[in-house]
Computed example of a mutant assay.
Amino acid sequence: MEVVICSSAEQIGAHVADVYAEVLRGDDPVIGLATGSSPLVAYGELIRRHREDGLSFAHATAFLLDEYAGLARSHPESYHAVIRRELVDHVDIDPARVHSPDGEAHDLAEECRRYDAAIEAVGGVDVQLLGIGTDGHIGFNEPMSSLSSRTRPKTLTQQTREDNARFFDSIDDVPHHVLTQGLGTIRTAHHLLLVATGAGKADAVAAAVEGPLAARCPASILQLHPHATVFVDEAAASGLEYADYYRYAYAHKPAWQTF
């Protein structure tokens, strides 16, 4: 795992965009997208590069991490709608190639199996962007999720519903259930990028990066991945015991070694 401590959210966004741009230059790229506040700066930079530098998404396929169960795709806070508003409508990717779990499916368990099979059918996700919750969740894998779990329905914790209430009129409107890629599914991506900003994420970041591998901190599964990169600002890095080492390692990173 590489930990990169950045000076600002904008620097994080530029680093993430660098990784995605490299993948997008390849043949038949498959990109993993996340929603929420953490990815927004990176999406803004990718949109800028598309408009100003000609970065193309036209040949890409995308998969979202998760979706609310029971929320219509037309609802403005469905992740199907959010990702189009935040990224898809501003670049040249084919919306039909942007896939998300169907939270309105009649058989949610079967929908989850179908979604995992669709990811496998394209050879897996090349690069997956991840945020982290204050309790260490990634995707909607709440604490005590199985470390080998696949895409499945999950019940949200009250903390996650409270964290997400800012996107709805009230917490009463936040669904209790979701469909999410499991930790085992996420681990099949070839490169994982976790981003975090702000002191509110410091404890979760420290637990994920330096704590034990444990279901109580789902993001700790990054420790098992052969290619995981963590981009954090100074505030989010404030709980890291080995912060000075991460800074030293990055400062002495060889020119031939990319993210």
Rank of each mutant, 00 (worst) to 15 (best):
V23I: 13
S74R: 13
R85K: 15
R73T: 15
A21T: 15
D94E: 06
A81C: 06
G36P: 01
D94Y: 06
R84A: 14
V91G: 00
E77R: 13
I93C: 02
P76W: 07
Y20T: 04
A58P: 07
G26P: 07
G44F: 01
Y43E: 06
E86T: 11
D27I: 11
F63I: 00
F57N: 02
D66R: 06
A34G: 03
R49W: 06
D28N: 15
D28M: 05
D66C: 09
V19H: 00
D18F: 01
S56C: 08
D18W: 00
G70W: 12
L33R: 13
R85T: 14
Y68L: 08
A69C: 11
R51V: 08
L33I: 03
A17I: 00
D27G: 08
V16M: 11
L24R: 06
E22T: 15
V88P: 03
Y79M: 11
A81L: 02
G70T: 14
G32P: 04
Y43P: 05
G54M: 13
R49Q: 10
F57L: 02
D66M: 08
R51I: 02
V82Y: 11
T35G: 03
V82P: 06
L33W: 08
L71A: 01
D66A: 09
V82F: 12
E22Q: 12
A17N: 04
L55I: 04
V91L: 00
G32Y: 05
V82G: 02
S38C: 08
A62N: 04
H59N: 13
E45H: 10
L40R: 13
L46C: 11
E22A: 15
P39E: 09
A21W: 10
V23A: 15
L55T: 04
L64D: 03
D28E: 15
D53R: 09
S56D: 09
I31C: 01
V23T: 14
L24Y: 01
L46G: 08
S74L: 07
H50Q: 07
I83H: 03
E86P: 00
A14K: 11
I93Q: 10
S38K: 05
H75R: 11
A60W: 02
S74E: 15
A42C: 02
R84Y: 09
R85P: 08
Y43K: 07
L65Q: 15
L33Q: 08
H59D: 13
H15Q: 13
A81F: 01
